[in-house]
Amino acid sequence: MWPASQAVYQSLLVEDAFGMSSQFVWLDNFIELFEDDHYIKTFGRTLFFSAMVAMLSLSVSLVLAAMADRVIRGTGIYRTLLIWPYAVAPVVAGALWVFLFYPTTGIISTFLTSMGYEWNHQLKGNQAMALVVIAAAWKQISYNFLFFLAGMQAIPKSLIEAAAIDAASPAKRFWTIIFPLITPTTFFLLVVNIVYAFFETFGIIHVVTKGGPANATEILVFKVYNDGFVGLDLGGSAAQSVILMVLVIGMTIFQFKYIERKVEY
């Protein structure tokens, strides 16, 4: 509570670059932000980034969970392997992906280059964006996988068997029975993933791209850091974090309100 209230207070001040004096300016910081093209762009970029992360990690983990749900032998190993990434710290995860994609020495970038595709995320904005999306999504797959798998295993087996007798192919069973029945889980994970992409990907971005090249991967949390601790605009930075705080509160309320809808078997 104390840091949060300090952030709110700070967001109403303008401070000089050396922190010697500060002036109370009411909402000027916020007005400035919303008039700033750069900030609006960052906002859009963040939305794009989190949508991509959520979509990628949700779809990959959904496929993995669907596969795990059908596995009969070796479930333990399969699940453990899939859960590992969650135990990796964001910075370490970011470092891993940097190594893999490092323009001159990375395994994947070398492979891509040999295939005739020029990879350099340090120069190309959209490649940088793709890389941070992949790295961020990868980290979240384990979490989503666990929830999806739990959701699928809560579906009574006889439902799937009934569908099999009702001449539904495995794919059809998945889309017409399993997927609709795990909607509450999907919805919950969607919110969690968006929140994750918004707020918890700082470490990955810091290690992989530092928001670059040319701000191509600068999302809102990164801009808070950049403006506040690099640009030393503490008031503006605080105002941004207040906006983020409002977003989190909003999403949390949204989730609590709608997540309670459960499917009954």
Binding site: S158, E161, A162, A164, I165, D166, Y265
Partner: peptide, 19 residues
């Protein structure tokens, strides 16, 4: 496959599709 056997089954818990 079960679907090719031209049978229908009634389960103990009915197994109705809840959605």
């Amino acid at each position: 496959e079960p679907s090719q056997r031209d049978i229908a089954m009634v389960f103990q818990n009915y197994a109705l599709y809840p959605h």
